[in-house]
Amino acid sequence: MATVSLDRVRKVYPNGHVGVDDASFDIAGGELLVLVGPSGCGKTTLLRMIAGLESISGGTLRIDDRVVNDVAPKDRDIAMVFQNYALYPHMTVAENLSFGLRLRGKQRDEIERRVRDAARLLELENRLDATPAALSGGQRQRVALGRALVREPKVFLLDEPLSNLDARLRLSMRVEIARLHRQLGTTMIYVTHDQVEAMTLGERIVVLDGGRIQQIDTPMNLYDKPANLFVAGFLGSPAMNLLRGRLQRDGQWRLDTARGALALGGLPAQSAALEPWTGREIVLGVRPEDLRPVDANQAVLTATVEVIEPVGNEVFLNLCHGAQALVSRVAPGEVPQRGSALPLGFAGDRLHFFDTASGTRIV
């Protein structure tokens, strides 16, 4: 189980564009770490630098205790799975799995053992004689994983391996990858733009935007305590509701917005941190599940129901509060009518507060 360490790693292109800016983090041996962010955030560039497919402009990259900045990809003992399966169409599954080992001159019995072990792990034992054209999308992706697996590398690098699959297959392959990681205990670095995929797979997640690391934490800590407005808006489906206004206190806390004052209550757990922000512009964050329909006499605000999205075990209410779009996540049952006015309250102990200017978390 290899460790991977990045110390102020940078990528600057010849035109001056900074693809990755001062990335520093450590990956423990056997950890599954996810790099997530929107398109162009630098996550794939960072993965390619770890693989040796992109040069490093600055900083230090180590695999175990070995500096590998200038080490060729083939000498880093890593294996990479790409978005496209890139299988050889004229070869069988067994031939695709063994091809890299044959190129490296491995002994026949060793090749057969590794292919057999990989096929068993990936439940491909009865498909070894099939060509890629005879396989489903999920099976092809498993072959691509198996081709990396037989290498028995120190580190697995996976670059959006599920993005070409449909929703059902993505779900089943997420489970496959998590199961595979648990069985192997190998260090894995996984790149995705899908925040649900990141939350369900990663033991820790690195959130990137504009080439810079925004936050590194466990999935639930990222969800419960986002470091800034970008992380708050990016992680969570539906996204966090964000309301801007001036924070005031007159016995109880309130947020003065363009649509009126929103009563926030006593906020005993947050008051000490919020005190210096009294009278200043802030952003209030409310997760959809914490924006709840209530009786009219308990309402903090009233919004109009615009779109109702029933998704089985929960319902998303898309709301309009003046020009402010909001989303409430509720249990199925008695759902309000589209166009109706809905009184809403906050879960006070679950509110998030951010600095309007910098976007950083206050509490």
Rank of each mutant, 00 (worst) to 15 (best):
T3H: 12
D217V: 00
Q183F: 05
A51F: 00
R66Q: 15
G260A: 03
G359S: 01
R8V: 02
G279E: 04
L171K: 12
T192K: 03
P226W: 03
E31Y: 09
Q270Y: 12
L53K: 07
V36P: 01
H90I: 05
R48T: 00
Q183D: 07
G37Y: 00
A325P: 04
R76D: 03
T302D: 13
A263G: 15
R114F: 01
T192Q: 06
S57C: 10
H17W: 08
W277S: 04
T356W: 13
L267G: 04
V12R: 14
L351I: 01
P288I: 00
G265V: 02
D129W: 11
L165M: 11
F156G: 01
T3R: 11
Q214W: 12
R140W: 08
R338M: 14
R66W: 04
K106Y: 13
D7I: 10
N164G: 12
D250H: 14
L32K: 05
S5H: 09
K74D: 09
R249K: 15
A94V: 12
R151Y: 11
V68I: 02
K106P: 03
R246I: 13
G260F: 10
V315T: 12
E306Y: 07
G339L: 13
I362Y: 13
D166S: 02
D117N: 14
L291P: 00
L264S: 13
M49G: 03
E275Q: 15
L229R: 13
G211C: 03
H181W: 01
E275A: 15
L326T: 05
V20W: 06
A72G: 05
E281D: 15
V327R: 15
S57H: 08
E160Y: 08
D129K: 14
D355I: 00
G211D: 02
I50H: 03
N297K: 14
I56C: 03
K43E: 01
D75C: 01
L32H: 08
G251L: 13
V327I: 06
E306D: 14
T45R: 12
L165P: 02
V335M: 08
I27F: 11
L46W: 09
G236S: 07
G333P: 06
I27C: 11
G339N: 12
Q83M: 04
V286D: 01
T3C: 08
G266L: 14
L103E: 14
G58N: 10
Y88Q: 12
A303N: 10
V231K: 08
R127P: 02
V93Y: 12
V81C: 00
M91L: 12
R151N: 13
P38H: 08
M199L: 15
T60H: 09
G285C: 04
A331C: 06
T60L: 06
P288N: 02
I213L: 10
G137W: 06
G16C: 11
T200H: 06
R127F: 15
A79D: 04
L158V: 05
R168G: 04
T278N: 14
G52T: 06
M240H: 07
N96E: 02
A341E: 15
L97G: 04
Q107V: 08
I27T: 00
A198M: 10
L242C: 05
A94M: 07
G29K: 05
P89N: 12
P336E: 06
G137D: 09
Q215K: 13
R182L: 11
A51Q: 07
D166P: 01
I63R: 01
R350S: 08
L326E: 03
D224N: 13
R350Q: 12
S5T: 08
V155L: 05
